[in-house]
Amino acid sequence: MSDTAPQNKDIDPHAQAAQIATRVTVIGMILDIALGILKCVGGLLFFSQALFVDGIHSLSDAFSDLIVLAVMKASRRAPDQEHPYGHQRIETFGTMLLGSTLIAVGAALAWDNLERLFGSSDAPLPEWPILVAALLSIVGKEWIFRYTRRAGERIRSELIIANAWHSRTDAFSSVIVLVSTIGAMLGFVWLDALAAVVIAVIVGHVGWNFTWSSVKELVDTGIPAEEIERLKAIARETDGVHNVHELRTRKMGPDILLDVHLVVSPNISVSEGHQIGMHVVDRMRETLDDIAYINFHIDPENDDELEPTSLSLPKRQELNTLLEEKLGIPLPHGKLRLHYLRNKIHLELFLDEPFLSGHHDQLKELKGFLEPQPWFGSLRIWHGEPV
């Protein structure tokens, strides 16, 4: 049995999220292009190789923004026949690429500044306009970082959040430019290189976190153990649930996909078991908003503790034929109810009063025939229609 999250027909959440992501990414891209041109020109005019490289970094951010736009457009499409669970894994893959980019940027910055730290340079000293350009970059990139991160958290997009941190690496590198310029003017040229190495390590660490998180999601790593225990407790506390013997989860972009096996009384109807499952689903959704799909399976006994029911046990048609032969009459639909429990079959027959009175011997003979059968569990004969 399964359940799919209800959708508001008037508002497509995928389209709404894609619209927000597009808007914030385009704003960031425009800012990256403007700052990139400013820093490249300023670095060439005022003798700052660091600012020029920082400008290249900003322009590379604009290129990564284009990747984000393409990925978000693809990942936020509604589910279709070929992708019934949606396209969110495209976003996960995009997040992994961005995280890898952050690692590469961090490694490149670290290597470059280690060379500067242990090397020497006869280049002209940078001039004061470099400080202005670096400050503008720091303020602009910090603003776009906060704006983008808020949008990413709102639409629950790891890709947009990762892109926000990618923007902040540009602010970090601008801080390096600012420190290096001040240090060079004061005579402490080595100070900016040391700070650059430290910040490069931080940038690489952020990239590693995003990359590793994406890799774990792509290999279907479940949600944290404490959240799984919370969901199990909720299921067990639901009226009608005897136990939960299996609960599996996996992430798909911002969404959680969940499979749960619920143990209920073996004597209830299929519809009542389904209703109990729907109550579990409703309570789980109240606990975790990120759950997109829940597949629940209703079990009459705990499969983990008992031997699985054998497939060689007689099926309904075989039993129906056997009973009709022994009783000498055809059984109308619905007169026989079967329970497959503990590798035995428990039968319930619903017969009217005239039949019970006129076929007492046949019923006694039937019971005598069933008892020695290895698959037989019990036989109950009810007077009247099944309820």
Rank of each mutant, 00 (worst) to 15 (best):
P6G: 14
Q16K: 10
Q19S: 09
V24P: 09
G28W: 02
A34I: 15
V41N: 02
F52R: 08
H57N: 15
L69M: 10
E82P: 02
T95I: 09
G99E: 02
S100G: 15
T101D: 04
A104L: 13
V105A: 02
L109P: 00
A110C: 08
R116H: 09
P124C: 10
A133R: 04
L136V: 00
I138K: 05
G140E: 05
E142H: 02
I144Y: 04
Y147S: 08
N163Y: 13
A164D: 01
R168Y: 04
A171I: 10
T181Y: 08
I182G: 04
L191F: 14
A193Y: 02
A195C: 07
H205K: 15
T211E: 01
S213Y: 10
E226N: 11
E227L: 11
K232A: 02
I234V: 04
T238Q: 10
G240W: 05
H245I: 03
L247C: 00
T249L: 02
S265Q: 06
V270L: 13
V270Q: 12
G277I: 07
M278T: 11
M278Y: 04
H279R: 15
T287L: 06
A292F: 11
Y293T: 15
I294G: 02
D299G: 08
T309A: 03
Q317W: 08
L319C: 06
I329V: 11
R337W: 08
H339C: 04
S357M: 10
F369K: 12
F369I: 09
E371F: 03
P372S: 13
G377N: 03
I381Y: 09
I381N: 05
G384H: 03
P386N: 02
